[in-house]
């Protein structure tokens, strides 16, 4: 599995478990806008951010809370991959 697939699968699982608890949304498309489809909203995004920070070891600053980073599975995965790359490696 590529890094992207791995990140995407992890995020998809989290979204399905936490925001779609009772409906089977297995076919959630990577390009689907999570806000326009009612899956995420402003408060949902904040708990999602807490999860991303914890599970990928990142700090997501306020100025990054933008549509280009968080509107779809694809956008979130790209953002996470980009962020993980830019975390400086340990000594």
């Amino acid at each position: 599995m590529s890094l992207r697939q791995e990140v995407e699968a992890k995020i998809r699982k989290y979204i399905c478990d936490n925001y779609l608890p009772r409906s089977a949304e297995v076919n959630l498309c990577v390009d689907e806008n999570l806000f326009d489809s009612g899956i995420l909203d402003s408060a949902g995004l904040i708990s999602f951010i807490v999860y991303l920070e914890k599970s990928f070891g990142l700090t997501i600053p306020d100025e990054d809370l933008l549509p280009e980073h968080f509107s779809s599975l694809k956008a979130i995965s790209s953002y996470i991959i980009e962020k993980t790359r830019s975390v400086p490696a340990g000594e």
Binding site: F35, S42, A43, L45, I46, D62, E63, L65, L66, P67, F70, S71
Partner: peptide
């Protein structure tokens, strides 16, 4: 923080 997210997701910038 949800309201900050709301602003920015709707195109507001600081």
């Amino acid at each position: 923080r949800a309201m900050l997210a709301l602003y920015q997701m709707m195109g507001f910038r600081k």
